[in-house]
Design a protein around this nucleic acid. Sequence first.
DNA 1: CATGAATGAGTGTTCATTCAT
DNA 2: AATGAATGAACACTCATTCAT
Lengths: 207, 207, 207, 207
Amino acid sequence: MKDTLIDGRARRAEAKRRARREEILTAAQRAFSKRGYHATSISDVIDAAGISRGTFYLYFDGKDALFLDLIELFAQHIMRVIEVVDPGGPDPTGQIYQNIRRVVDVVFDHRDLAVVAFRETVGLDQSVDSKLNKLYGFLREMIEGALLKGASWGIIRQVNARIVTTALIGGIREVFYQYLVVDPVTYPDREAVAMSLFEFAVKGLLP
Amino acid sequence: MKDTLIDGRARRAEAKRRARREEILTAAQRAFSKRGYHATSISDVIDAAGISRGTFYLYFDGKDALFLDLIELFAQHIMRVIEVVDPGGPDPTGQIYQNIRRVVDVVFDHRDLAVVAFRETVGLDQSVDSKLNKLYGFLREMIEGALLKGASWGIIRQVNARIVTTALIGGIREVFYQYLVVDPVTYPDREAVAMSLFEFAVKGLLP
Amino acid sequence: MKDTLIDGRARRAEAKRRARREEILTAAQRAFSKRGYHATSISDVIDAAGISRGTFYLYFDGKDALFLDLIELFAQHIMRVIEVVDPGGPDPTGQIYQNIRRVVDVVFDHRDLAVVAFRETVGLDQSVDSKLNKLYGFLREMIEGALLKGASWGIIRQVNARIVTTALIGGIREVFYQYLVVDPVTYPDREAVAMSLFEFAVKGLLP
Amino acid sequence: MKDTLIDGRARRAEAKRRARREEILTAAQRAFSKRGYHATSISDVIDAAGISRGTFYLYFDGKDALFLDLIELFAQHIMRVIEVVDPGGPDPTGQIYQNIRRVVDVVFDHRDLAVVAFRETVGLDQSVDSKLNKLYGFLREMIEGALLKGASWGIIRQVNARIVTTALIGGIREVFYQYLVVDPVTYPDREAVAMSLFEFAVKGLLP
DNA sequence: CATGAATGAGTGTTCATTCAT
DNA sequence: AATGAATGAACACTCATTCAT
């Protein structure tokens, strides 16, 4: 009886703690996405989160750790929805499209987070770099593998897979950045964005 | 007589001033490209330039203004080599390739400057943004115009010109960034880089 | 009947409370002796004591008060074993030696506590000062009294009792500090330490 | 002509710089001696010195470095006036007395500095420790050497040189501390202080 | 023109203490 | 009685910018 009481308390405390952490992460996303990592101070974050200075350091080891968590979070979101394309399976290009479509969803469902991840280029910091590189390395591997396999199956052209992979990532990144930051559209036609990216990536410009 | 003397002096002084300014800009390129805008201090720049603190502020209004000048410089370099593609002229795709080829030259001839421009994403600052947007707007216009014209001439497919333009710029940018920062190659095969970018942009992935 | 019940409860509660207090004091001794007053945080103390933050403030008014209690504790230990030397009694110098011997025992039986008291010099804080001064004042009085009485009985030389007392205290303190902190010996030969201190204090350097 | 002008300027600048540094050191002595290392903030120091925050860091690497400099300064003062006692020379005990007398002068001529050095016990910090240990090691060596040599010449008693040396240093330290902090005397009778210390150290208490 | 000493607002971080549960 | 999440004042330190020389 008492144990369940204690457990209940502990559970509630744990839930509250998690919720608070989430709140801070959300506030940080907004703050970082608005002004970038360097220009955002801890004061900005705690003001946005409505907490005190000390409380922030109760939940995060520091500014770097917070930022790292955000990058990690975004990387997980993206990596969760990417599926290896099977060129021998049914409708391989359809599989590619579905991957793009799901990434579009992740990005527009987590706008601030996506902006944070896209805004800062590699080169910020050792540990941030490694997180970003983990994400980009993952994407790279997926895409490059698909390109090579697709070429061997005769589904796509022989191309310099490395360069094309890089270009694809950059292209997709830029399109999102445009939609999210430079010229934000509240409710973008996700289908259209995905289709455009897909066509650009797959069909090229020649008629 | 005295006027010519003064003019001579003034001219010499002006030349010296310009040379000094150039030196600072060059030093700043190296500094910013190595560590990024935020991590580079004015001390880094003046140490690299071999000038005193005060002198720096004699030539530039401040850190932001210096950075702005660098962006402006790069934008001019790029904008100078881009030529409007005439779909009715001889070998229109060749014209596109030549544009890409010339951009490749600019980037690899001004590595530090290019890194500075590519490293910091839009969003640093109001005025930096406007400079970068001017550059990107220019590129955008060129490419988008070519796409639309090309489509109307039946040379290229009907695509969402806006999105594809953005993707192209992002793709090119990313490829350069990879070559310049992440995995730098001292003497890249410019021809090969240009050709890969060209093929990727124009031919797409389908066989 | 109910009263005795209440009394029993109260007594048991009081005992528990005292035990808890003791535990915290012991943990604090270890913590303070290891890292000094300033470098030791309340977190260090409560971690060492295995209690929660709030509990600590239930037993002590704060960090200063805790420290004060430790100093007080040490002062009591020392003051308990010092006995007034009777120059007219049997073997007066033996009495001095026995005092030193007992102090040696107290110090080595309460190493951590001794280190705490010796480490921080007078000047930390108003109230800490007064506690330390109480201890030193007591020692001072004992020693100075013995010196004066001894001189009047012709047992010891005429000296500036105030200065010599101070020097004696400092000398003893330093020797202990050396043994406890700088060059700690797990099982020092207490007899030898006491004898050295005694000879130094009493016999001087002349042959 | 111009060179001498430049040299003159540089010399004046250098002199001014040195003077400023001295001012800060003096202010820091007062501040640290009043409240101790930990309780003294950089704000205290710069307020006392009448300079701005930034200026402080122009002259010192930080709080630790400043403190280190003070300890070093005191160590040099002391070490400069200590002379090796030659037991075969004229009046060996007189030589000891002269050493003590000179140390008394140094201490009372640099009260604040002496308090800073005496207040903080070994254990503050790695580098501070090493500086303090250098000073104490030096004193230790001087005194221990004199004790051993003196004993071999039959001038002083056979004693445990290590312990006695420690006790002497502690005794002297405490006496100074008393005069400087606990019960400060504006114009102490330096001769009397030196003589008391000397008698205590050399003659002991027996008649 | 050129200098570099001086400035002070701003940064990320710590920690003794409080108080609702 | 016991807890530990929350607080915010305080800290050491940085750096873009100014200005007397």
